[in-house]
Design a protein around this nucleic acid. Structure first.
Lengths: 200, 200
DNA sequence: CATAAAAGATACCGATTAGTATTCTTTACA
DNA sequence: TGTAAAGAATACTAATCGGTATCTTTTATG
């Protein structure tokens, strides 16, 4: 029961990378098994079809990754405006897996698959909602502690910030350099600053 | 020379709709010719391959549409904060062609094709840059007339707003109703308000 | 009207797609 | 250690893909 698990996981891991860089529909099963050295028999032993594998990528690879790297830190934040900015700065300019050229894995998959496949839509919605709610909780805590202005609406802000992130990742694809990201981050900083109480 | 032009145009028009609703790579030439009642011979008479057709869709359908509906109004705006909001409100809640489920045509195509095809990337970049610069010009005019705060950075704001739009269109795909759009627009209004001089 | 070019129709091609059927090998455990 | 089930390998299928070759029809112009 050890080898089998690692086979399954290597399929998911490699598929995640291929889907991220090439899109879901453009990633063929033949490509996956070729780049993982897994045979078709093994692939279809672990997944009854391609979509089941795609859903497993969301639930077993993308979700845990996002939870550990972003949801958890947000839930522990005492300085939301600053921590949100740091997170975005990290995602856009520092993270070495998320290449500018390829955008955001969750954003890409949402755009491609949510109109086509209801199950994908639900899985991605869960992922996204969790991140948004974590951000809302962080903002609420910031309100309670007095750092954040009491008149802001957490849900509005969370949605606004996450939308901006997905959008700028799309802009990023159009440029060779990081200039879009740098300009975006400046305005994000100004926007987030404005959420904080002046006396802070 | 009349029928031929209309054949070509009907290919482009139908392709645009199919690409918008199904994605570029998922739209096959066979599907296009089936839904347009154009034969393969006619298709390949007008376009030497699929990508040439795709580029024509961007340049001859999407670009003029965007220019007339958004660039031009922005260039004529004397009240940028208000006009940008109205434009977004129209795009998200009123326009009947842009269905929530399918996102933004330019955003979709950018996400799918810019990592894959340099020519697509350039054509889309031109489209996007033009819109962004129109917004910057409108904001600059607003600054000059005193409506807009002199300390804001037009490029930052334009990029921030357009990113938000692309992002929220992606969010929209995940929900059945318009709630995401409504929440987003509230925060956008507050953000845009903050760009205006207080005495106004 | 003749004719050449423009425009369109039809049949086909090799490659690739997701998925299946069948067989072989490894592993767990009595 | 024997055996059944888990896991993996191989060979195949029908459908679809973008594109081509070849042929027919329409249109513009002398």
């Amino acid at each position: 029961m050890k080898k089998a698990v690692s086979t399954r996981l290597s399929i998911l891991q490699k598929s995640f990378e291929l889907i991220y860089t090439h899109g879901y529909q453009a990633t063929s099963i033949d490509t996956i098994i070729a780049t993982t050295n897994v045979t078709k028999g093994a692939f279809f032993y672990h997944f009854k079809n391609k979509d089941e594998m795609g859903l497993a990528v969301i639930n077993e690879i993308m979700y845990p990754l996002m939870y550990a790297d972003f949801v958890k830190p947000l839930l522990n934040s005492d300085d939301p405006a600053n921590d949100i900015f740091k997170m975005m700065h990290y995602l856009l300019l520092e993270n070495e897996f998320l290449l500018k050229k390829y955008g955001c894995p969750a954003g890409n998959l949402t755009q491609e698959m949510s109109p086509v496949n209801q199950q994908f839509s639900e899985a991605l919605s869960k992922l996204t909602t969790e991140l948004k709610e974590a951000m809302q909780i962080a903002l609420k805590k910031g309100k309670d502690s007095g750092r954040i202005r009491p008149d802001i609406n957490e849900e509005q802000v969370a949605l606004f910030v996450l939308s901006g992130y997905w959008g700028i990742r799309n802009f990023g694809k159009l440029s060779e350099d990081n200039n879009y990201y740098v300009v975006y981050l400046k305005e994000l900083k100004s926007y987030l600053n404005n959420l904080e109480k002046k006396e802070f």
